[in-house]
Design a protein around this nucleic acid. Structure first.
Lengths: 359, 359
DNA sequence: TCCCGATGGGAAAGCGCTTTCCCGTAAGCT
DNA sequence: AGCTTACGGGAAAGCGCTTTCCCATCGGGA
């Protein structure tokens, strides 16, 4: 007798099929219908329970074939997914990185996958991404970037959000976006007021503010908080002493230089975020030769991780960034409610070494 | 005459249908078949062109209904998606944030959506996410976290990667992962050597190293590079002068303290990444009262954005982080090749003020 | 003994797209 | 004219799941 043709292993050899393994193949290998296989693997449909024996066979077959279900197909059939979108301005910005990390942490705990979209500060892209996330049937999206204070943009955003919502989507916003939605709201106003009050308590009366693009609601809120506090304290703030630092280190650095040439006598600067504060500190120290806090006090905003490592360590208003992300994700998990919810997250002044009484 | 009731627009009122708008509905509104609607909206299928008139009608209908196609359905039909996965250890870590940002930049330019997964340094999760990304039919994934030097883990990773690849997926790794795949490889070894050589050129002969978890291939490579260079320079490195800084600021801070008590005479420290360097600087300055660089020189690794703002500004080995991410994404776009490709990205020593000749 | 209600499995109908055919019409040849 | 090509549109067959029905089986109560 010649050598027999290769004998199939008892339970059928592992096929090396073309393309991904399908549920059907798993079912065949387990000797059951695809309905049973589906129920055994994802037993979600009501009370239907698969018998112990079959269940085991299916699970084994799935493992042997390294089966993972086709998520798009599943999404189509179930008409729901387990992906959520998070849109930020820029992941490389530690502010957004921290929020995203917070959100991703709780997403993971609940088996959600996150699609992260970075708009690089282009409002148009925000709209775009929202539409694409809607197309993806993302279960929810958190709008983590700052809102834009632009009439037309807000209208279009609202329209897109409405469309998304009509499709069953849920959006939660971080900060004001001019849309009615669940929102977690960092205390930008009172935080800025805190910074001002601290400086005022120290005895400062001549303030400068390094702000950001006015179009951002975050900037508006912080600026407004600082202004109000100043006013209620009876301290004047000449327009020339508020300058736009562009929300980046470099722009803030040059802004600080012009600010100081415009108002060489100011003794206190509140900078509307820590990234810019780093630039301001650099300008003061390296460009202007001014000592902080001896000659000028500065306080930042956000309390990013590097704030403590700046020179000098930065006194700043802490925002619970990871919490912001985490709470936003929580709101997603508890699903949309009849009335939009608002969660206010408080700030805290972190005292370090960039402030002291004026001479 | 009383005010007329709102007149329905001529072409049928916009329905407020339950659930998302489907292609079918768009087709009906445009008075064409769904085939034509599909072609008009996503004309990808070969040469089939839709007539001008119909095309316009379809586009209009789609816009009016705010239609976006159901991505999962599309994925199922086309059996391909436009999502790519990026898995990192932790987005809040500026190192990963920068890589992710680089990747997302080019992803955006090409209309790719990115699913970002953070393993929080749990290898198990890496495997998990890889499987889920496979389930999502992500077109490709970039493994941006450091590899783990663990026999068993690597085997399992390879198996998962193979499965993913068999399904048509493409994986590109950043750094060594022990798998045969496209990889972009930061020059960790030569970068560390660079740091050592710089310090040696300055005249330092007594080195300390603040390392990280040995299980990470990134750590191994950097450590190895430093060690080799030291050896070839004939400089001894007692085991006690290599300490694990845990890859975090806080752990590195305490590590630096013990390092200095073990070896009070060392004059140069190379720290295997910048976030640890921040901790080391803090320890030296605030805990130990040692002046940098006067008494101890330190050089970091990565050149994270905050490195220039540390006290003192940190001399460090720059890794082109955004490029790493961008190039990895490029490799995804050019698709898998027969032979795995390797792209080496070079480092550069950035001189700042944390190093000087020993006294 | 007969009937009835659980129980668990399978057949098959979608989910919303894409794409292959198939077809009618309008050109472009000889 | 007669015939071949394009050309552009539509019908319908999937893509890989989930879920609704339907059905066979079995245990128990009257």
């Amino acid at each position: 007798m010649s050598a027999p043709t290769p004998i199939p292993t008892p339970d059928a050899p592992l096929p090396r099929p073309t393309g991904p393994v399908t549920l059907q193949q798993v079912a065949e290998r387990a000797g059951v219908s695809s309905a049973t296989a589906s129920r055994a693997l994802h037993g979600s449909s009501g009370t239907r329970i698969v018998g112990e024996e079959l269940r085991r066979r299916v699970l084994d077959a799935a493992r042997e074939l390294r089966y993972v279900s086709n998520a798009p197909a599943q999404a189509l059939a179930r008409s729901t997914t387990s992906v959520v979108g998070v849109v930020v301005h820029d992941v490389a910005d530690p502010y957004f990185a921290a929020i995203a990390a917070g959100a991703m942490g709780v997403a993971r705990e609940h088996g959600l996958l996150v699609m992260l979209a970075a708009t690089f500060r282009d409002p148009e892209l925000e709209l775009d991404y929202l539409a694409r996330l809607r197309a993806q049937r993302a279960r929810a999206v958190v709008l983590a970037g700052s809102g834009f204070a632009d009439r037309d943009f807000t209208r279009r955003l609202a329209a897109e959000v409405d469309a998304y919502r009509a499709d069953g989507g849920h959006v939660v916003a971080v900060g004001e976006h001019g849309i009615a939605s669940d929102t977690v709201r960092p205390a930008n106003r009172s935080g800025a007021a805190l910074a001002v009050r601290h400086l005022h308590d120290l005895g400062h009366r001549d303030f400068g503010i390094v702000s950001g693009p006015r179009a951002l609601t975050t900037v508006r809120d912080r600026l407004d908080g600082a202004r109000r506090q100043l006013r209620s304290l009876g301290v004047p703030l000449p327009p020339a002493q508020v300058i736009d630092g562009g929300f980046t280190r470099e722009q803030a650095r040059v802004a600080a230089r012009t600010l100081l040439t415009r108002a060489p006598d100011l003794t206190a600067i509140v900078v509307l975020n820590d990234v810019m504060a780093a630039g301001v500190l650099a300008a003061l120290r390296d460009d202007l030769g001014l000592r902080v806090p001896d000659q000028v006090s500065v306080v930042g905003f956000d309390d990013l991780p590097f704030a403590a490592d700046l020179n000098p360590p930065l006194t700043t208003v802490r925002l619970p960034l990871a919490d912001i992300g985490a709470r936003a994700m929580d709101m997603i998990l508890t699903g949309p409610t009849i009335e939009p919810r608002t969660l206010d997250l408080d700030t805290e002044l972190i005292l370090r070494n960039s402030t002291m009484p004026p001479r």
